[in-house]
């Protein structure tokens, strides 16, 4: 039950986690009006940063989406740092220094994640190479078989190519 489970991770996982540790009493709702910055440009920057920061206690939400208390504290922290003149990257680094790379929903490109980021290109490339050789193999087979078609094969071939073949041409 995929998405069901996943969304539960927000609420239930927290509940299950609470058996192990306690989470601070939580006011509900993600970003709240009283935490927002007066300057819309600054607030927009804060939103952009917090959308890429993982809420640690809910595990699969960004702090922008989460109503957990910790997420709220981190959102406020981000806004404080911005007010103090930090760049977006500096704010991110500040969080990473305290909570580790784990808080970044967008994994940074480095040696350990090269395979991850390269994967789509590698997969498409390998696939294209495979398809290319497969087609070439097909072509060679035709070339090899070309001059020595049996009568039966000739007939079948022509029936396949023939424009009268309504099914294939439709």
């Amino acid at each position: 039950m995929p998405s069901l489970m996943s969304r539960l991770s927000s609420a239930i996982l927290c509940a299950g986690f609470a058996l192990l540790i306690a989470l601070a009493p939580s006011p509900s709702g993600a970003v709240l009006p009283d935490e927002m910055l007066a300057d819309p440009a600054m607030e927009a920057r804060a939103r952009v940063i917090s959308k890429d920061i993982r809420c640690l206690v809910c595990q699969n939400q960004s702090i922008d989406d989460s109503d957990a208390d910790l997420a709220r504290d981190l959102r406020i922290l981000i806004r404080e740092r911005l007010n103090e003149g930090d760049t977006n990257d500096q704010v991110q680094d500040y969080l990473v220094a305290r909570y580790g790379e784990y808080v970044l929903l967008n994994p940074p490109m480095r040696a350990g994640t090269l395979l991850l980021w390269g994967a789509p290109a590698i997969l498409v490339l390998l696939g294209s190479i495979a398809v290319f050789f497969w087609f070439r193999g097909l072509g060679r087979k035709t070339a090899a078989a070309g001059p020595t078609l049996s009568a039966e094969e000739e007939a079948r071939l022509s029936s396949l190519i023939s424009p009268r073949n309504g099914k294939d041409q439709s």
Binding site: D52, G100, E101, Y102, N106, P107, L116, A119, P120, L123
Partner: peptide, 26 residues
Amino acid sequence: TVFLGTLYPLFLEVVTGDKISVGPPY
């Protein structure tokens, strides 16, 4: 790609011990 993105944190943790997140931006 979806498979690798989903399981990469697990693989990386086993290999290097690093714990990373792969989220919607990826």
